[in-house]
């Protein structure tokens, strides 16, 4: 029904956590993985996230489509980094170890490859967790989770509205584009940017204008049903926290503390194996 959350309903301990817990854990985990480049820590996070993936009973084929995007993105970024700064690793680790006799600008160095390994690990530590969140969180519960962790309910509800209307907008985009082709508008890809933008806007304008009408109708409908009447609201899909929820959040909070501690111990965000040599 919804292309965004790829919710797969299979009973597992992870599915049973509340959406709020999963969201907090996702944020804490990402913060931990983002704040440090300590290779050992990232490797542990990566391994742990793969284990959790198993626990959640989500299968590789459920997410292979998403993973292919990620993979392309990752490769592209690695190549770009290498092309622009083949010596980025040497600057970071403050040493240069050529791996080949050739020592020109693009010569591979152990430091550069190690940097790329870290770059890769950073993704390994975060991607499975994001996928896990996407696959095990009921989108309906997402908005209430945001409200639960302190986001104002009005903002949380706009997230819910966005999720509600994404499939509608998508279908409408498709239909409008067909209708305008039927009336003779060329959508060819072979023209320059300005023309491409112009033909894109013959779809965009009706799409946006209907959306503006829709904004009016929806806000009327919501107001007629008492939205915004009080300072708080309840949520049909909300669940109370239970013990596993608390435990998970504490564990993830500890991870952040460890990450920060490692940065202090290492003296920088990088774990530098080349210094000891």
């Amino acid at each position: 029904m919804n292309n965004l959350f790829n919710y797969i309903d299979r009973p597992s301990p992870i599915h049973r956590l509340t959406g709020a817990t999963k969201f907090v854990c996702l944020m804490l985990w990402s913060a931990a993985a983002m704040s440090t480049y300590d290779t050992r820590f990232l490797a542990i996070l990566g391994a742990a996230s793969l284990v959790m993936f198993k626990v959640s009973r989500i299968k590789y084929k459920d997410v292979s489509f998403l993973l292919s995007f990620t993979f392309v993105f990752l490769i592209m970024n690695n190549i770009l980094v290498y092309l622009f700064s083949p010596l980025h690793g040497c600057e970071i680790y403050n040493s240069t170890t050529y791996l080949l006799p050739y020592t020109g600008h693009f010569a591979p160095t152990a430091e550069q490859l190690f940097y790329h390994l870290n770059y890769f690990l950073k993704y390994l530590a975060t991607i499975p967790i994001v996928l896990l969140f996407v696959c095990t969180t009921n989108p309906s519960e997402f908005a209430s989770s945001l409200n639960k962790i302190g986001v104002k309910y009005s903002v949380a509800y706009s997230v819910s509205l966005a999720l509600r209307y994404i499939p509608d907008v998508q279908r409408q985009y498709h239909e409008i584009s067909q209708a305008s082709q039927a009336r003779g508008i060329e959508m060819s890809r072979k023209t320059n940017i300005v023309n491409r933008l112009k033909s894109a806007s013959t779809i965009l304008i009706p799409l946006i204008l209907t959306s503006m009408d829709r904004i009016e109708v929806i806000s009327n409908a919501m107001e007629l049903r008492g939205f915004g009447k009080r300072d708080k609201r309840t949520w049909y899909m909300a669940h109370p926290f239970r013990r596993p929820d608390i435990v998970c959040m504490i564990v993830c909070a500890i991870l952040v503390v460890i990450a920060i501690a490692l940065n202090i111990i290492n003296g920088s965000r990088f774990y530098n194996p080349f210094m000891q040599i």
């Binding site: 989108p139 309906s140 999720l163 509600r164 929806i218 009080r230 708080k232 049909y236």
Partner: peptide, 29 residues
């Protein structure tokens, strides 16, 4: 209580249950 002509736009919840509950949620039930 008003049922608008456009029942698509009136449907603000992500599922049937949430949409029916909408007014109650706003009333903090």
């Amino acid at each position: 209580g008003t049922v608008l002509q456009d029942s698509d736009a009136q449907f603000v919840g992500m599922t049937v249950a949430e949409d029916i509950a909408f007014a109650l949620e706003n009333d903090c039930v």
